[in-house]
Design a protein around this nucleic acid. Structure first.
Lengths: 171, 171
DNA sequence: GTAAAGAATATGAATTCGCATATTTCCGCC
DNA sequence: GGCGGAAATATGCGAATTCATATTCTTTAC
């Protein structure tokens, strides 16, 4: 037979013949890992941990979110998120304020320096993303994002059945 | 103005207007997270931790890999991998054997029960993947995988410059 | 052949993370 | 207008994960 295995060089998982190299969940995790590692290094250089960056990013989009939602958005488990918010509060990046209408809720707001740092990093993230997209075929990135949202939606549906926000503006 | 924000329901990050909901690295992480969570539950039901499953899967593809490479393939940091292999060895799923040509290297082999469990789980993973792919548009999954490999390759290149295996067959 | 430099693993301490649960507050109902 | 139950956070603690480094072995250049 001619299924001679060309010696395995490097990681080249993707070009692998086995199961793993074609397994969707693996490809997702692997792509996420390698692509993120790069940017995460930048995050750490600015003295932030990755989870902190995620929170900054989420708050930059929508400030003053409640802990539970922030935990969902940032992909960080709730009790862990609470601890990270603690640290960020100490660093002066965010501050807590309990919701007036429902005092069980705790909303997290960016401080001024948090906002600044957040914007900076979001810019850096945009640039980083651009660098990646630029290396893909035209339209490939769009399709990719599309498909990723699709997958997210497949499961996200379950999560979508969440208590909605009942506030007009956090004003 | 009519940029009235329809109250935010559920997670629906993907449908978000902000930065995060369109950020590639976020979409990757989020999709990976939600899609995996599902299968990982199955893994735990069989008494395995997620990292253990990853190792089983990699070894099922190519048995007898050295620790370093296994760590790259399985996306697990080296010293952590060592510890997990310890546990798996205790469970009787794998066994270590040092490479004859280079005794610094430790190769990890599946035991018989490890092989069996591995095959079982790979089957389950295939089924699970199938269920996902089935819900996507025809060809969408293929494109997705393609793009993911593409991204992986962008960075993987750096990693590919690795010391190659110099063994004909682990016979 | 031998010392220096580099690889491959393992080990130990320090963090981070996640589960279970306590606590506070809200909500519907009697 | 008080009770039971659910929601939102926080906390304690054990397990998981990482980082720096020790250890062992290999290779290269003298």
């Amino acid at each position: 037979m001619n299924t001679i295995v060309k010696k395995e060089h490097g990681i080249d998982v993707a070009g692998n013949s086995g199961f793993v190299g074609e397994y969707l969940l693996y490809l997702l995790a692997a792509a996420s890992d390698v692509a993120s590692a790069d940017f995460h290094a930048q995050v750490r250089e600015r003295g932030l941990k990755v989870p902190e960056w995620r929170i900054l990013a989420c708050l930059s989009d929508t400030d003053g979110q409640m802990v539970t939602r922030l935990s969902q958005l940032s992909l960080i488990e709730q009790s862990h998120l609470t601890k990270i918010v603690d640290q960020m509060a100490v660093k002066g990046l965010v501050k807590r304020r309990s919701d007036d209408r429902d005092r069980r809720r705790v909303r997290v707001y960016l401080t001024e320096s948090g906002r600044v740092l957040g914007l900076e990093l979001v810019e850096a993230a945009r640039a980083h993303e651009h660098a990646i997209v630029k290396q893909m075929r035209p339209g490939e990135a769009a399709l990719l994002k599309q498909a990723l949202k699709h997958i997210h939606a497949l499961y996200g549906a379950g999560l979508s059945a969440l208590p909605e926000e009942t506030e007009t503006t956090s004003r």
